[in-house]
Design a protein around this nucleic acid. Structure first.
Lengths: 335, 335
DNA sequence: CTGAAAGCGCTAACAG
DNA sequence: CTGTTAGCGCTTTCAG
């Protein structure tokens, strides 16, 4: 059905190897021949079979993107930027949703290996056992983590300064006079989330009268935020400010608060993390910690691409800065 | 580095063909041998090279998902469902964002062909020229459109009843007494969006005093909705209700309205389309047309999988029903 | 039931 | 500069 290199070669009356060279623009092909081959290829609608090429060259033109859940707007933005960068570099992206489930994550990684992807951008390997981590390292393909990498490991990483982001959130709330605060985060032990919590705690410890924040764990999505806020209202009614570990959690919390007749920011202040597009449009607009999501996605793919083509397999690490975006979901604590 | 079938065969002291049969569970291998081969494979961490397998069998285990933009929450939900279904069937998903740009769309389709994907789920081919459509059809791989297919074409399709959805929105607004209404939709001539508009128009024509709705076109995303609403306020200040062609547009419009001091639903009623998760959490919660997004994504992949494995290449068409979800963004028109 | 041989479509030495 | 040869890792006839 679809024309092969042999068809082109036969039609142009040259050998397949010559046709290959001509089409790939490799040096050492007479101009006239190259033109002829290219003309035939165009006429036959020839398209190179990347599967075959990958088999012989040993390198594929596919990159795996193994994330928690594409429905998380943060991940969608990141995936979009990653896909754009990959496309520009001539790569395709295979999308996998792990829900941060370790078993699922490992299964997906192996299946990406089966597809002989050139590299993988993935959330984190913190939840995986030593053996699995070893297995990933042994695969010898470039891996970029979207979180702080474990010590002495061969993976690259791209992330934001989570600790500082958490600190900014805490300092901001403390500055508004809030002493009884809560942090809504995930049940999963993800480095990014842990660091946010650490930064937040550090900020709260620095203020006098600062009590230890209430820590609630649940699913790190809209529903989880909703449920955690409900629990919070029931068990810790004195809390005057909430720091959500990401914007999705914040949205869920806002929804629960609203349903319970608790006003934001009059009754409770709310601050998020990520600054996804939606943060600016919910009512009230969400004060949150902003990070360059697209740049992170792009940087991750760029590292993979560089490591695939170059031979420098030295891991690269990039940390992006964060900043607080003040909108309308927080205010001075009322006496 | 990674063990090959030959390694397994040598280690198990059988021929590669026997090893292949044993591992693939094909009939006609003595039990004892099969066990031995499998044991060796496990010991060597053998994983089949799907690229090589695809080359010889001619069928790949990858499906292309060629959509407008994964950042659209509707698409993210659909992609997630599609990926889940694909994974269950042993397929991987390659993600491509076309922005509905015809040239980009075609480029991506061809690049998916280069990867020898087994099939493609894509938005629509309406924007493509005849020649490109022909090219897609000639590829002979199963294609599922997420919109009404052009007549006499060989593609399958999965979609919702857009016309009815538009009609429901129109009838609802008319029932609330709105006669001066506007429709905010995309500049792109997408069948889904056109059908929504047609249904909406039909509903408005049925009411007495119903004027022709104002029709505004822009980007079918948050920003587009924002800009269209601004234009609307400036040029058509008398409008009392807005039907947005999708929820993202509605969110953008809500934001612009809010920024201009126009209240929803007191001053203007707003209804969306898609019922993405966010619709229930914005303030006020968005009244919208609901469709089974996940089922659509799953159905699309299921059709591809069925057509790849079975030999029935007859196109399949599925239409899902819609319903109106009444929340708080619309109210009776005030005199 | 198992092995030998051919070949998927392509690239990459190596000769000429 | 071009053709010849070999082979990537796997499946699949075809013999034995």
């Amino acid at each position: 059905m679809t024309a092969t290199l042999r068809d082109v070669a036969r039609e142009a009356q040259v050998d397949v190897s010559t046709a290959s060279r001509a089409l790939n623009g490799r040096a050492g092909v007479k101009k006239e021949l190259r033109e002829r081959v290219r003309a035939v290829a165009r006429r036959l609608n020839y398209r190179p079979n990347l599967v075959a090429r990958g088999l012989v060259t040993g390198r594929s033109s596919v990159i795996g993107l193994l994330i928690s859940d594409i429905r998380n707007p943060f991940m969608a933005e990141l995936a979009r930027a990653a896909e754009d960068a990959a496309c520009r570099a001539g790569y395709d992206i295979i999308l996998c949703n792990s829900d941060l489930n370790p078993a699922k994550q490992m299964r997906y990684f192996l299946s990406l290996l089966d597809q002989r992807v050139g590299g993988v951008v993935m959330n984190s390997v913190a939840a995986l056992g030593r053996e699995d981590r070893e297995r990933i390292a042994q695969s010898r393909i470039p891996v970029v983590l979207l979180s702080r990498p474990p010590r002495d490991c061969s993976f690259s990483s791209v992330r934001c300064n989570n600790e500082r982001g958490g600190y900014l959130a805490g300092a901001y709330l403390a500055g508004l006079g809030h002493t009884k605060v809560a942090h809504l985060t995930s049940a999963v032990q993800h480095p990014n989330l842990r660091e946010r919590w650490q930064g937040f705690s550090r900020a709260m410890q620095q203020v006098r009268k600062g009590r230890r924040p209430v820590l609630l764990r649940g699913a790190h999505n809209f529903r989880g935020g909703f449920e955690m806020a409900q629990r919070l209202l029931e068990k810790h009614p004195k809390v005057t400010a909430i720091f959500a570990a990401n914007d999705s959690i914040a949205f869920g919390a806002a929804s629960a608060l609203h349903a319970a007749g608790v006003r934001i920011p009059e009754d409770i202040s709310l601050i998020g993390f990520d600054n996804v597009e939606m943060a600016s449009i919910v009512q009230p607009p969400l004060t949150t910690i902003s990070l360059p999501i697209s740049e992170i996605g792009k940087a991750a793919v760029d590292i993979i691409v560089r490591q695939i083509s170059g031979k420098d397999q030295v891991p690269e690490h990039r940390t992006f800065d964060v900043r607080l975006v003040e909108r309308e979901s927080c205010r001075q604590r009322q006496r």
